[in-house]
């Protein structure tokens, strides 16, 4: 089976959506990422990444109810799909395999 490719940013965004659970939408994802990684994350890139992954089928979205906040505009909440979970697991598996294959000396060399 052909492995799916997941970019680094995509992986991080997907994971954050999974972490946030029911409260995952573009704003919370952006803020969570900023908090966790400590770097400034562009809102527009998060938005487009979410769109792209929904297209790929890793995410699904649903519009929330209208509230009094933000001018009465609804939020689009994202949920990781089964495919998304599988992809995340696969990426993790590949990474774990790679870590395990790493010889002790080589790691120290690169560290020194």
């Amino acid at each position: 089976m052909k492995r799916v490719f997941l970019g680094e940013f995509e992986e991080v965004v997907l994971l954050t959506v999974a972490i946030l659970g029911e409260n995952a939408y573009a704003v919370t994802v952006t803020q969570e990422l900023e908090r966790k990684t400590g770097r400034l994350v562009g809102f527009s890139s998060v938005h487009t990444t979410l769109q792209r992954m929904e297209q790929k089928g890793y995410l699904t979205s649903v519009m929330g109810g209208a509230t009094a906040e933000r001018g009465g505009r609804r939020k689009r909440f994202f949920v990781v799909t089964a495919l998304g979970q599988k992809v995340l697991l696969e990426v993790k598996q590949v990474r774990d395999d790679l870590w395990n294959a790493l010889p002790q000396s080589g790691f120290q060399l690169s560290k020194g």
């Binding site: 573009a26 704003v27 809102f43 938005h47 001018g71 505009r73 939020k75």
Partner: peptide, 28 residues
């Protein structure tokens, strides 16, 4: 996606105002 993006950006704007100040929030 116009509706949610408008809402999201409004929320982000408030967030930026609190964290980096009005001027930079507007720029963002």
């Amino acid at each position: 996606t116009s509706e949610e993006v408008q809402g999201d950006l409004l929320e982000m704007y408030d967030h930026w105002v609190q964290t980096v100040g009005v001027a930079r929030a507007r720029r963002h």
